[in-house]
Amino acid sequence: MMVKKPLEFRLNGTEVAVFADEAENLLSVLRAKVGDLTPKYGCGQGGCGACMVTIDGRTVLSCITLAETVAGADVGTLAGLSGERLDPLQEAFMDGFAAQCGYCTPGMIVAARALLQHNPTPDRDQIIEAISDNICRCTGYEPIIEAIQSVVAQERAGGS
């Protein structure tokens, strides 16, 4: 009999409680137990970034994060980004053709939002560094970088 452990955390600001399997990873809990399908399985080895989420504002690869380590923490996914309106990053990704197959997109946007949270005015190199854990196979890095830059420019213009 497999041991299941109760686990409580906040997902995009809402309390959730699940029973996690022994050694179950956070990606599996989010997708199979909670039903948040925005983080994707790409490699299961922490190599591609498709499963990227935030824990207390810091990006992590959920496929190699033990679920039990998020007890009591704030977990953020792409699903938490847009409410009634899309996040400016989502708008910019749409305008700039920064998604092709769409599979790496949730992780990319989570990485970009976390960057802007900590540094609202990153330069190009800092943007590249921030998405360097995220692999895109449809070779869309340049439009992705440009989309993030356009949001930086927008927010800078709006803020001044």
Binding site: F93, A99, G102, T105
Partner: peptide, 9 residues
């Protein structure tokens, strides 16, 4: 299909 892509849906 890009709205689905950027919202993860």
């Amino acid at each position: 299909d890009i709205l689905g892509h950027v919202t993860g849906r």
